[in-house]
């Protein structure tokens, strides 16, 4: 049954080469921890992606309850954390995952750096990777405000003050982020939109580029 459906689609669209290309690509000995235990350092990139997927899924579930306005944001997080079954697990995963993704990405970056894997011809992939790093920091910054408790509010206020002190364009960055003169209702909706739509969109595009390039170029050879 499954096979005949697959064949029906394959006859029309020739999908086999698409997934075979992903499936059959070579995983060389020097990155395989089964052969050399020290090769576990090559796992961090995959784990970063794994945690990112967890972040996306848990985030999707969080938005089922979260309300991005200053009256209800805190109340909805509070309800999610204390009343919704498994809500504290989902929120906990999103909260700790945010830190974990930074840790994994940091380790992945260090591995790439210290093995010199970013050298020609892989320069562009390094640059895209660093852009992903910045997007992740942006996601961390915008997500921190969303529970709308005191910690969130005052940290964002300080963050925006820091942005404000950038010469020449600081004022504009501040108004762009705040959506007005104070950290308030519009700031919360803006941070929500940036956290949930803008940055994840950019993140997915960059991840696609990151993976396409690694497939095209293959993993860097052994040292």
């Amino acid at each position: 049954m499954f096979k005949s459906v697959y064949n029906w689609i394959d006859e029309r669209l020739d999908v086999t080469p698409l997934w075979r290309d992903v499936a059959d690509h070579e995983v060389p000995e020097h990155v395989n921890p089964a052969h050399h235990f020290s090769a576990f350092v090559y796992c961090f990139g995959g784990l970063t992606f794994f945690i990112t997927v967890i972040q996306i899924l848990s985030g999707m579930f969080l938005t089922m309850y979260y309300v991005p306005d200053i009256i209800n944001a805190y109340a909805s997080v509070d309800y999610l954390q204390h009343k919704v079954p498994f809500g504290s697990i989902v929120r906990g995963m999103h909260h700790w995952g945010a830190s974990l993704v930074i840790v994994m990405m940091f380790l992945h970056t260090l591995r790439v750096f210290f093995t010199g894997s970013y050298k020609a011809p892989r320069e562009m992939n390094w640059v895209v990777g660093m852009l992903i790093f910045f997007i992740m920091l942006g996601l961390g910054f915008t997500g921190y405000l969303l529970p709308w408790d005191n910690k969130a509010y005052f940290a964002t206020k300080v963050g925006i003050q820091i942005a404000d002190s950038v010469p020449y364009i600081g004022e504009y960055i501040k108004i762009f982020l705040q959506g007005g003169e104070i950290v308030g209702a519009t700031t919360l909706t803006r941070f929500f939109a940036i956290h949930v739509f803008f940055l994840p969109g950019a993140l997915l595009a960059l991840l696609a580029a990151h993976f396409l390039m690694i497939r095209k170029q293959g993993i860097a050879g052994p040292l």
Partner: peptide, 24 residues
């Protein structure tokens, strides 16, 4: 360790010590 949640944001609270997430 459940995710932390404090009290609702109160802009008039002047005693709160702001702290960013650890990676900042």
């Amino acid at each position: 360790h459940p995710a932390p949640l404090g009290y609702p944001a109160d802009p008039t609270n002047s005693a709160f010590i702001p702290i960013p997430d650890w990676y900042f």
